[in-house]
Structures are given as structure tokens and as C-alpha cells.
């Protein structure tokens, strides 16, 4: 149990550390980091390399945005096997629809409730 959480912590932390390293070295914006990591996740899944990481580290690999890219690719691959060409188009977004819909609807609700505030630091 504790070992599982240690693995989650190490893998999740390591992925974030890579992101921070990129920020420091290249002054990259957060938007570009997210794009890059999603693409990396999708490519790793395409090569069949990401599932083993998830099996080993659970949420440590699914919570980082890399996991989102992996879901897109996994959805596309599975849908292609079932539906052929149509799956190429439907697969990716179907697999990630939960996350996107949640992000959109919660963003909408929060925006109705809250106003933006000035940064203190």
C-alpha cells in the first residue's frame, strides 16, 4: 500500500520535474508545456510504452497531462480496431470526453460564481 503511494509520488513528481526543467531552461509558457506533454503521451501510447507505466504507478501516470494524451491515443487505437476509419475520428475525443466536459462545465460554473482577483505576488 505505502509502496504503491511511493511509486505514484515518484512517477508523478518526476514528470512534473521534467516540466519544470523545461520551464527553467527554455522559459516555455504553460500552454506549450501542456501541448508538448499531451503529444508525448499520445506518441508513447502509440508505441505501447505508456500502459506499463500506468500499471506500475497508477495515478502517478494518469493524473499528469501526459495521461490525457495517452487516453486520446488509446481511444483512437481501440476505436480503429472496432470501427475502422470512423474510429480514427471518434476514438480520441470519446475516450477523453469525461475530462473535457468536466473541465468545461466546472469552468462555466466557477466563472459564474467568482470574479478574478488581483495577484498579491
Amino acid at each position: 500500500m505505502l509502496w504503491m503511494y511511493a511509486k505514484v509520488f515518484l512517477v508523478g513528481g518526476f514528470i512534473c520535474l521534467l516540466g519544470q526543467l523545461l520551464i527553467i531552461k527554455t522559459n516555455i509558457t504553460s500552454s506549450r508545456i501542456l501541448v508538448l506533454f499531451v503529444c508525448i503521451g499520445a506518441v508513447l501510447e502509440g508505441l505501447g510504452l505508456y500502459q506499463p507505466i500506468i500499471d506500475w504507478a497508477g495515478a502517478g501516470a494518469t493524473v499528469p497531462i501526459v495521461g490525457f494524451g495517452r487516453s486520446l491515443a488509446k481511444g483512437a487505437i481501440e476505436a480503429v480496431r472496432e470501427q475502422g476509419l470512423l474510429g480514427v475520428f471518434t476514438g480520441g475525443l470519446t475516450a477523453t470526453s469525461g475530462g473535457i466536459a468536466a473541465a468545461v462545465v466546472f469552468a462555466f460554473i466557477m466563472a459564474l460564481i467568482f470574479n478574478s482577483k488581483t495577484k498579491k505576488f
Partner: peptide, 19 residues
């Protein structure tokens, strides 16, 4: 600060670090 930030940079609530 806040009007300049939203015109020139990012939304105020975005959790990014300033270089």
C-alpha cells in the same frame, strides 16, 4: 496591474510562474 496583465499576458488566475 490587473488590466495590463489581462491585455498583455495571461489571465490572473492562471497558475504559472513569472520568469
Amino acid at each position: 496591474f490587473s488590466s495590463a496583465e489581462r491585455q498583455y499576458r495571461f489571465p490572473l488566475e492562471l497558475g504559472n510562474q513569472r520568469p
